[in-house]
Amino acid sequence: MSALAIGGVSRTFAGVRNGPPTNALLPTTLAVADNDFITILGPSGCGKSTLLRIVAGLDVPTSGDVQLDGHVVTGPGADRGMVFQSYTLFPWLTVIENIGFGLREKAMPPARAAEIAAHYIDKVGLRGFENHYPKMLSGGMQQRTAIARALANEPRILLLDEPFGALDNQTRSLMQELLLSIWESERKTVLFVTHDIEEAIFMANRVVVMTARPGRIKAELAVALPHPRHYTVKTSPEFSVLKAELTEQIRVEALKAVEPGI
């Protein structure tokens, strides 16, 4: 059964200073099954983040709708946890307080909330940093906290908007492995937006490729690599085949984005 159904969702932004409106996203339809891990791959400015924000309820579609378990999404809610590309930890809260933010909002008893927060602290490997403020953490640690914060809320689906985009390559690889291992043990439903081809293949069961602006879904590619995945899979022949194909697809779109005349 599909948990999330994106039905004909499009988004047009009003023009700046009476200019023509911008078509960010053409009508897009996508079904996300329970426990699925889907990556949305596209060149920058293709509307993939807009699509994710509409699923999160932070933006409204110009047409179409998003349904979660049959209910139409009308605004943001705790059932759709989100991790942003920018660092969005609350700077006035410690790591453990950040992770417990959503639980406190649900009025969960503090003892129970502390227990859950501690569980996710361990999961993302931040034991010993519970009482640090975000300012004292590296970018990778901040994003790990952000993932723990979203997971602690037990959302129905986890949305990630280029969560590792601001990290250096080594940290990014480690974060991918961490998130994948969490998914392998918890089997959350995940929608992950990225422009990084390797990341898209390594993480996903299914890669959805988007075209340059105005964005629409161009192709879908199943990733049959077995779980648990080890980072060495990135150098396997199967991985290379997928990577070659996606590189070709994305290159065409990236060219279109750079030279709109082609």
Binding site: L58, F84, S86, T88, W92, E105, A146
Partner: peptide, 27 residues
Amino acid sequence: RDLVEAAYTLGASATGIVRRVLLPSAA
């Protein structure tokens, strides 16, 4: 704004946004 949005996706209500995001951030 990104902090406000993050709070919304964590299930914060309108009063939650004021009391737990706007106030501490501006204090």
